[in-house]
């Protein structure tokens, strides 16, 4: 996707991403030339069986791993060609993360867990705390602002984790199995929160095994053996359709309109 000046408008672009472990002759290829674009305001569900390369792919997309080959552009910066300090700076202004296990500091209150991430970017702590409180209040946690993670339910902790991910107004949030530890209604409310931010222009890449999350997605990308096996609309973009079948299409070249998938081909 390019804007009218020809520059890329995608939040993220990955081209020909290859990743191998180890050294010859014992090397293992985890990713085999993955291409992926993430547009602004899009909730993309990344699915695939264990060992398909999902974690490796998001680690590369976030600049936590360097691809063996290929190019990754995050927020307009080619992170695959940058050194560690430069990639760190790009992550700081572009990325938010949500993890299955929350990874909240047990010693900090809900407010401070959110505020300290904002303070890392140079925001004075007083201002950061005000923003954190406002955000957590919006997330229905006004009665839990000064509680530590150990005093919160799993759903409340995940809300804090989401608030921490979006408090810096990142262009892209990567959520790794954010609902796996949550019961059905709590998982649904977490997804609602994420959708709210997608509507406001934030892109979300959501890694999951849970096919139910496809209902909330704009797009589904399925990985299999280190390759993009399917790339198509999710149910949020096509509420009357199905998450697979006619709406799923082979990955490249990606068109603006879905084309027939394997079943329709």
């Amino acid at each position: 996707m390019t804007d009218e000046r020809g520059a890329s408008a995608n939040v993220l672009e990955a081209r020909g991403v290859v990743f191998t472990h180890g050294t010859p002759p014992l090397e293992t290829r985890v990713l085999h030339g993955v291409d992926l674009d993430i547009a602004p305001g899009e909730l993309t569900v990344l699915m695939g069986p264990s060992g398909s390369g999902k974690t490796t792919l998001i680690s590369i997309l976030a600049g936590l791993l360097r691809p063996t080959r290929g190019r990754v552009v995050l927020g307009g910066s080619e992170i695959s060609a940058m050194d560690d300090a430069e990639v760190t700076a790009v992550r700081r202004r572009t990325l938010g993360f949500v993890f299955q296990a929350f990874h909240l500091f047990p010693a900090l209150t809900a407010t401070d867990n959110v505020a300290e991430v904002l303070a890392l970017s140079g925001t004075p702590i007083r201002v950061a705390r005000e923003k954190a409180r406002a955000l957590l209040t919006r997330f229905g946690l006004e009665a839990r602002l000064d509680h530590r993670p150990g005093e919160l339910s799993a759903g409340q902790r995940q809300r804090v984790a989401i608030a921490r991910a979006i408090v810096t107004s990142p262009r892209l949030v990567i959520a790794d199995e954010p609902t796996v530890a949550l019961d059905g209604p709590t998982a649904a409310s977490v997804m609602e929160l994420l959708r709210e931010y997608v509507s406001a222009g934030t892109s979300v890449v959501l890694v999951t095994h849970d096919v139910r999350l496809v209902r909330a997605s704009d797009r589904v990308v399925a990985l299999e053996d280190g390759r993009v096996a399917y790339d198509g609309r999710g149910l949020a973009a096509n509420p009357h359709g199905a998450p697979s079948g006619h709406d799923i299409h082979p990955p490249t070249p990606r068109s603006s309109e879905p084309v027939a998938g394997p079943e329709g081909a």
């Binding site: 760190t88 700076a89 992550r91 202004r93 990325l95 993360f97 991430v117 970017s121």
Partner: peptide, 18 residues
């Protein structure tokens, strides 16, 4: 005990020196 939380900070842009 805090490797995961520190790893999370690193993921969202904390430098090694931080």
């Amino acid at each position: 005990e805090h490797h995961k939380e520190l790893g999370m900070l690193r993921a969202v842009g904390a430098s090694r020196s931080e």
